[in-house]
């Protein structure tokens, strides 16, 4: 998928993460801040990159503000932000396909 415009998903509540995606031409640029950076920073980063890879996003500036979200929540927020950036978040989501 191609990031066509900036989009945000998630909140700053505990156990959640706020993910912003923006168009870019320089591959994947990830900016991460987390309340559990020392313990889980690497894991969160891996989940974000894997999710973008599965969605075939090649170029994207992604900003993640994590408040202790589980992997499943990080995935959900990244996916939602990407689909929103393409105006495709409302229907015909490939559940079990690229979203899994």
């Amino acid at each position: 998928m191609t990031i066509e415009k900036s989009a945000v998903a998630g909140t700053l509540e505990s156990s959640d993460a706020m993910v912003t995606v923006e168009p870019s031409k320089n591959g994947i640029e990830l900016e991460l801040s987390s309340s559990v950076m020392n313990q889980y920073g690497r894991q969160i980063k891996a989940v974000v990159l894997e999710t973008l890879d599965r969605l075939e996003v090649k170029n994207c500036k992604v900003t993640v503000v994590d408040k202790g979200a589980l992997d499943c929540t990080i995935k959900a927020r990244v996916e939602c932000a990407v689909f929103r950036s393409c105006d495709k978040a409302d229907k015909n989501i490939p559940w079990g396909g690229a979203v899994r």
Partner: peptide, 16 residues
Amino acid sequence: QKDSARFSLYHALKTI
């Protein structure tokens, strides 16, 4: 937030 709730729901159902 209806779209976002569905992504959240899907992964909760599959993971938890």
